[in-house]
Design a protein around this nucleic acid. Structure first.
Lengths: 229, 229
DNA sequence: GTCTATAGCATGATAGAC
DNA sequence: GTCTATCATGCTATAGAC
């Protein structure tokens, strides 16, 4: 069972380097640099800068000159790693989806009663969004800039995630572990609350709220509504 | 007391034309056209197009030529209404804030027990965001593109709105109408849930969820957590 | 594998006719 | 009050030296 954030983090071992290494392996065809260590090291710089600049001014308002200045690359050098500016969105968002789906599926496949399952999925999502906050924020804000096909995929992944929660709630209602509430709407609200953690990360930091606190609180609110009185 | 959406809408009388008329009156200094009827009519066109284009591809990705094509204006004609492209963000966002603050303050100034007050504020916010959905969505997405001063104001307004809910919850706890929960966090979650209505408007439409249904459901979830067992 | 230099184009903004 | 024509700038992307 998933308890605190630290052990979740250690178990997943999702460092920036590890994330970019897998991203590189999966996108070798698009990237001109063939030396893996060099490529991964520089991808970390490029993606770091992209996420920072895009989150502060927006991806479209960020020029490639900005990106080069921030990452210490030259325009020419940068283009060895991407084919176009828009490639960057696809790269970052696509890999974010992959990790989210994989992590959430892994955490919810084990047999468990709905209440535990719900809390586990909730924590997994919030904790993952904490580790990858800039990725999640970027994905949310830049979905509208995606080409049509990728945008549809983004919406589909969103729905898939929501459905994981929907199914858990439905199972709980069927087993009479939960009250007979509107499962679809509650799944949506659950998503909305999880989302707020990475959309308003700064606000929660300023308030001194920790991830674990936040996840626990959302868990309590959901249980207040779901558990029989 | 605030009941259904339709009567709220009729009472406020916030049509596009009325919204733009007040916006024009408050920003006469920036707008070169002096005939009010002409100006208001065209501002409706311009702002409509801006909100539509910005919501589908983002404000920065929308060029002024796009805007002209969509609104039927010429570049030269457009510049009689704005001084620069960025003026448009300020105009739209600033006026959205004004209306939100005014409406929410008006709905919560009456004396009422915390439970009623909370539900009234909740409905007022969600109903207003339904009437002005494109404005709210635009405001949220483009806050990052604002110049420093305006960005700070945007964050301040956000916090002010959240504090309205925070204070109501605190009062309820103090009077023992509510359980002793974390008021600050619950106010944040309340905001997150209200926000989802205008951020994911399409999704809820597709599901067939109505505003009234949504507002009622969020109200129930909050009460489940707040009311003594 | 990374750099500098530059092509080619789209953009925001203005001037001035009507 | 609205239009067309044009300017100056800044952008993405490429070519070619090292």
């Amino acid at each position: 069972m998933l308890a605190d954030f630290e052990s979740f983090k250690n178990e997943l071992n999702l460092t920036k380097v590890e994330i970019c290494r897998e991203l590189y392996d999966l996108n070798r065809a698009l990237i001109r640099i063939k030396n893996e260590d060099v490529a991964v090291k520089n991808l970390v710089r490029i993606i770091n800068s992209t996420l920072r600049l895009a989150s502060s001014k927006g991806f479209h308002a960020m020029s490639l000159r900005d990106l080069c200045a921030d990452s210490g690359f030259s325009i020419g050098g940068l283009y060895a790693y991407i084919r176009s500016k828009d490639d960057l969105i696809l790269l970052i968002q696509g890999h974010g989806f992959l990790l989210t789906r994989r992590t959430l599926r892994a955490c919810t496949e084990a047999m468990a009663p709905p209440r535990e399952k719900l809390l586990t999925a909730l924590k997994a999502h919030i904790y993952l969004s904490e580790i990858m906050q800039p990725w999640f924020y970027f994905s949310f804000m830049e979905t509208k800039s995606l080409p049509d096909k990728a945008k549809k995929e983004a919406i589909a992944v969103e729905l898939e995630i929501e459905n994981i929660f929907y199914e858990i709630i439905r199972e709980g209602i069927a087993r009479k572990d939960f009250r007979d509430v509107n499962a679809r709407l509650l799944a949506s609200l659950c998503k909305a609350m999880m989302q707020d953690w990475y959309l308003k990360r700064r606000k929660y930091s300023n308030q001194g709220t920790t991830v674990t606190q936040y996840a626990d609180f959302v868990g309590e609110v959901l249980q207040s509504h779901l558990l029989p009185r």
